[in-house]
Structure formats: structure tokens, C-alpha cells
């Protein structure tokens, strides 16, 4: 159970949050122009890294805000937490 530093509320227990999977996958602006393969790339393909991963998290039982988090999946170390739309930090 980690402690997550919500960028809006501060440090809270993990049980207040839900994870939304890999971050920085942008929904294509013109989906109709994509081939099946290109669309499938957006729709299905997700990384599952052992190590540093960029993830979306939601403070579901708190402010309900979505934000991004850099977490090392091998030891659950959280390297950074930042708001949606902000540039990902270099880790």
C-alpha cells in the first residue's frame, strides 16, 4: 500500500486511488483517417514494463482528479507525480 502524493490534495493512502494504466497515450484527433492497424495500436497496445513506468491515476475517493505518476513497478517507488497536461519529467 503506497502513499500517493495527489497533486491537488497531498499525500493520501493508495486505497483512495485507482490506476488507469499507461499514461501519455493520446486519443487520435482524426480516428476515421487511421488504418485498422494504427487504430489498434492506440486501442489495444499497452506497455507492461518491469521498471519505470508512466501511469495515469485517479483520486477516485478524493478530489476525483486524474493525474500522471512515474512509478517503478519493480519496487513501487514513485519518482514523480504531475498534473494532466504537464510535461512528463525526465527520470
Amino acid at each position: 500500500m503506497f502513499l500517493i502524493n495527489c497533486p491537488y490534495c497531498g499525500e493520501r493512502d493508495q486505497s483512495e486511488f485507482t490506476c488507469g494504466g499507461e499514461a501519455h497515450i493520446v486519443r487520435p484527433k482524426q480516428p476515421t483517417e487511421l488504418s485498422d492497424d494504427q487504430w489498434a495500436e492506440y486501442l489495444f497496445m499497452r506497455k507492461n514494463i518491469k521498471g519505470v513506468q508512466f501511469e495515469r491515476w485517479n483520486h477516485a475517493h478524493g478530489c476525483r482528479k486524474w493525474f500522471n505518476m512515474v512509478r517503478d513497478t519493480s519496487n513501487d517507488k514513485i519518482h514523480a507525480v504531475y498534473k494532466m497536461g504537464e510535461k512528463p519529467p525526465v527520470v
Binding site: 488507469g20 493520446v26 486519443r27 495515469r56 485517479n58 477516485a60 476525483r64 482528479k65 486524474w66 494532466m84 497536461g85
Partner: peptide
């Protein structure tokens, strides 16, 4: 509600 909030906050802010 969660799904709508997600799209609003992340894809269509």
C-alpha cells in the same frame, strides 16, 4: 460518471 470524467479531464480538457 468515471468514464465521462476521464474523457473530460484527459482528452477534452
Amino acid at each position: 460518471l468515471s468514464k465521462l470524467e476521464d474523457y473530460l479531464q484527459t482528452e477534452w480538457p
